[in-house]
């Protein structure tokens, strides 16, 4: 499915702020894998997702999706394969456009856009049904501007948009971190549901170790731009937070430095 082979990326090369963000990340995802990613501050979790999404070119290494080498493709061309939800609820939607217009934009991800109508009558009916599934009452507000929605509503909408056209890989970058606990739980539950129903392959960065253990079939721990622990199946299901912390210390030689992660323990 997804293959990352020895991905490296250094920011601000040659300056005092030089930062080796990715230090040889290698991983192979199988079809239907739902991987949760945890790690300390600056471990390279979000950077890995950004490398896959093509926010910038990597320094070296190869990225393949379903056998296609996408290492040289710019962000907007990779979008064809990827659904993305970001940490900041403002990032994933266009605030000055209507809910239904945002969905219509997402429905055309990876397709050439011409002078046909940006949204059709038939689509509107489909979107109404899909929005009902979110159970947020958005189906009655389809012509409202997205800027009027709350963070949780926007994140749920972004999730729907990311999966409206089935992505080959869904990237969730701490997508519940900016939400209050109740809303976060709801969005996470929705993520699970959508991933399961559509049999999606997904990667989810989180700072919540409980969530990382509870969701998905595979867990990756990162430190200093490398994957230091990769576990799946039964072994993953039986993980505990304390064991993960211990594992981190073993693998990295230091205690975990992610405050938010420790607070959510």
């Amino acid at each position: 499915m997804l293959v990352l082979n020895d991905i490296r990326k250094t920011f601000n090369i040659g300056t005092i702020n030089e930062k080796k963000a990715l230090n040889g990340v290698t991983i192979t995802l199988d079809d239907g894998d739902f991987v949760t990613i945890i790690g300390g501050n600056g471990a390279g979790k979000s950077t890995t997702l950004n490398a896959i999404a093509g926010v910038w070119p990597v320094d070296s290494g190869v990225i393949e999706i379903n056998g296609k080498n996408i290492t040289g493709l710019p962000e907007h061309k990779r979008a064809k394969f990827l659904g993305r939800v970001f940490q900041d609820p403002m990032t994933g939607t266009a605030a000055t456009m209507e809910i239904q217009e945002n969905l219509a934009l997402a429905a055309r991800r990876g397709e050439s856009r011409g002078l046909r109508w940006g949204i059709t009558k038939k689509e509107k009916d489909e979107y109404r049904e899909l929005l009902k599934m979110l159970d947020l009452g958005l189906e009655d507000r389809m012509t409202s501007k997205v800027g009027l929605l709350s963070g949780g509503q926007r994140q749920a909408l972004t999730l729907l948009m990311a999966t409206l056209k089935k992505p080959e890989l869904l990237l969730l970058d701490e997508h519940t971190a900016a939400l209050d606990p109740k809303t976060a739980a709801k969005v996470l539950e929705l993520s699970d549901k959508i991933i399961e129903e559509n049999k999606l392959t997904a990667m989810m960065v989180t700072h919540n170790m409980h969530d990382a253990i509870r969701h998905g079939n595979r867990l990756i721990m990162m430190n200093k731009g490398r994957i230091i622990y990769d576990v799946k199946g039964e072994e993953k299901k039986n993980l505990t937070v304390d064991y993960l912390l211990q594992k981190f210390e073993e693998a990295s030689g230091t205690a975990i430095n992610n405050d938010r992660m420790l607070l959510s323990k």
Binding site: E75, H76, L82, A94, L105, G110, E111, R113, W117, G118
Partner: peptide, 23 residues
């Protein structure tokens, strides 16, 4: 109101979102 017009509006409103949608 066309697909092409939508891409301009999305670009002006939120370029990050626009690129994530393949624009």
């Amino acid at each position: 109101g066309t697909e092409q017009g939508f891409t301009l509006r999305a670009t002006g409103c939120n370029p990050n979102m626009a690129r994530a949608q393949g624009i």
